[in-house]
Design a protein around this nucleic acid. Structure first.
Lengths: 134, 134
DNA sequence: CTCCGTGCAAATACTTTGCAAAGCG
DNA sequence: CGCTTTGCAAAGTATTTGCACGGAG
């Protein structure tokens, strides 16, 4: 049996989730904090971290991984591909999946792994940075 | 023109590279440090970090990403797939590529991206942890 | 009234960096 | 010798946590 925790309503929690969902910039905890600070002057960064962690384990948001030392979140939990720019450290969504479910499943089976999710992360230089460099 | 730096020989640097290459555990900086400490009692963690960073930018090792707050390295720079266990945070190599170069290339072209590398990271529970849980 | 959620600040954990000394070429 | 590499310790950054108080049910 799992530990189920009661959960009260919280205006701030709702706002945090909405903030993550409202952007495609794959924000950091601090971005969310800065974003909401004007409207919630007494918001604290710790609260943002606590809620993001919770959302993540609830599966309502996902982590894109750590880019340049900061964790990046994504409100879109449908599987999709990410592109990370080495220059500006921006994260972009790339439409498409690119992984063969079947191949993965068979490789996993062979190794006795239980695969729960699979991410594709491309690295390179984004269009903006390319332009700037030429 | 690129910044080319002269590079002297260093016994410790060599040992650090060898340590990363000698294992398939996808070590952290600290693992490498602990590993070499007995043989090089005056080795410092800063040196390990400095060298790993250098190797990474030289392309002789690669980063698997940050797992559980620590960066994991891989001495095998040929493209391959990684599996990260949610329970024990172990990182395993999975033979196979699973990404379609062509599809990626065409999606990238459409978005004006210059893709330099692509990683597939699977998440789930490894065989050992599965066994332990049953 | 009873827990949950939060602000605040202190504590952690990892990684980076400045500087003087030691090493390579 | 000149420039690189390192040890050491201090600094830096991102994230987590303890505690007392305000808020939801």
């Amino acid at each position: 049996m799992q530990t189920e925790k009661k959960r009260n309503y919280s205006r701030k929690r709702e706002a945090i989730l909405k903030a993550v969902r409202s952007t495609t910039c794959h924000p950091t905890a601090d971005w969310v904090y800065q974003q909401l600070k004007p409207e919630y002057p007494d918001l604290s960064l710790g609260t943002v971290y606590r809620n993001l962690t919770q959302f993540k384990s609830d599966g309502v948001i996902m982590s894109v991984g750590t880019v340049n030392g900061q964790e990046r979140f994504d409100g879109n939990v449908r599987p999709h591909t990410h592109f990370v720019c080495c220059r500006c450290h921006g994260v972009l969504d790339v439409p498409g999946d690119f992984v063969s479910e079947n191949e993965v499943a068979s490789a996993a089976k062979k190794m006795g792994l239980k695969v729960e999710s699979g991410d594709v992360i491309l690295h390179g230089v984004c269009a903006e940075c390319l332009k700037r460099e030429n």
